[in-house]
Design a protein around this nucleic acid. Structure first.
Lengths: 255, 255
DNA sequence: TGCGTGCACCGTACGGCGTACACCGTACCC
DNA sequence: GGGTACGGTGTACGCCGTACGGTGCACGCA
């Protein structure tokens, strides 16, 4: 338990939580209380609002008491992240409905996760060590794609690609929402304030393509662009699969 | 110039820079010097290292002098962001080589941008107002896809989707690199420290799919997964295009 | 020529942050 | 019943962004 592996304590906390002590006074808190209070605070007010002082106040303890449970704020964020990922009901129930509906549910769930917990997309966020929920997530993914004629390596690539896409789209959406909110305006107000300047510049001759755009060019909702890209990805995958089935088809005659 | 539009000053700075003053002493700096010093510092040491104090020291001025040029750190970040985006040579030269090679170059350039300037993926990053380089970027994109049989709205969706993908993949890659670097180890060391714990858990019976994975499952490079997903997207798009050409083909006989 | 004025420069200070450290008090083991 | 291991926390340090106000330069005008 006291190896020199520098990740030991992180891994220990993620997978086994705190060891329950025998001696000394009873702890006032549990690790879970701290982590979920952190998640609530970050969900409600953003990552900026999550300071150790505020979190401690919310839990009615002194600031430094938190450090009896968690070695640093970074480690707390790692725990918060793992606590928030993990298989959702939606995906569990779609695992046997064919790969396309499973992957659709997976990417939707990923996007919803990032939008529900925007703080997962903020900050330095050096990706933590893998925790139990992340691994359960991968386990479910691998189950959902078990029928696909792809190598395990390609399946893992697929997981990475789809998560990247969910993350990227959610991040873009969040940035616009934040930009408006930070300036204390709605999305529409934000646009309308920019429009005069943009229109002047676009019709200046420097941007002929931009000047000639349709009225509705910028009218897509985030949901629509997200769906569009998701269909591209899945269509591309379907292509891939058909091709690999065609390639292996001749061998079928051997049976 | 003194309207109550709350974005006026931001837009002014982005599009026109600072007005050159008539009275008083000559400014020691230019806006560009500040912005590019900020970019250099953030590139070299990350966004955390970019404090107003350090930036001022690097420029040999007092901390508060910076505020004569830039109203806040947030605004500085907006200017920095617009200063690093924009059409690259690679993309400009591929604009007439067919949509597929143009889009490939576009997404590659996007990914390279995010990897070269990882700070663009950090922090709150409430997306700023659109600056001249961002608009030039869109202009180029619209030129590159002008032949595609898609509505302007769909083309804009495509721009969003591809940027999301570039951003998502770059972000994932950066997170792993950071995670290792923050702990002061290489990527490989980071993996090897986690492996014992993961292997123990995976063979515990709770994760049968994970336990049965090929040896090479996790061996893909970031480049490989990125390429894989990019091909999926472009194949999907090709599908879309062929379908829409097929649909409109009957009309061709009218000619 | 000289002076008034508007702007550049920047030292100081305030309220936040993460967290190192040391001290206090509790509750179990022997 | 005493020793000891451990939970709780007050204080302090060195960072951060930036509000405020003082100082002195350089041009427009008399």
């Amino acid at each position: 338990m006291r190896e020199q592996n520098p990740l030991t304590t992180s891994l220990q906390l993620l997978w086994n939580g705190l060891p329950d002590p025998e001696k000394g006074p009873k702890p006032k808190l549990t690790l879970n209380q701290i982590v979920s209070a952190g998640v609530s605070l970050a969900d409600a007010e953003g990552l900026d609002a999550l300071s150790m002082r505020r979190l401690a106040r919310a839990l009615n303890v002194g600031t430094m008491s938190l450090y009896r449970y968690v070695p640093s704020k970074t480690e707390l964020l790692n725990l918060m992240l793992d606590s928030v990922v993990g298989p959702s009901q939606q995906r569990l129930s779609s695992v046997d409905g064919g790969w396309r509906s499973f992957l659709t549910a997976t990417v939707h769930a990923g996007r919803r996760l990032y939008l529900d917990h925007p703080w997962t997309l903020q900050a330095n966020w050096s990706r933590p060590v893998l925790g139990p929920n992340s691994v359960a997530d991968l386990e479910l993914f691998m189950t959902g794609v078990r029928e696909l004629p792809l190598s395990d390596q390609r399946k893992m690539d697929l997981a990475t690609v789809l998560d990247s896409y969910a993350q990227g789209t959610a991040r873009q959406e969040m940035m616009w929402i934040n930009a408006a909110a930070d300036s204390g305006m709605t999305d529409d107000e934000f646009w309308s304030y920019q429009l005069p300047t943009l229109e002047k510049e676009m019709t200046s001759g420097r941007f002929p393509m931009m000047a000639a755009l349709d009225e509705e060019t910028f009218n897509s909702t985030w949901d629509e662009s997200f769906e569009f890209g998701l269909q591209l990805l899945l269509d591309g995958l379907e292509n891939d699969i058909r091709r690999s089935e065609r390639d292996s088809a001749p061998k079928k005659s051997k049976n």
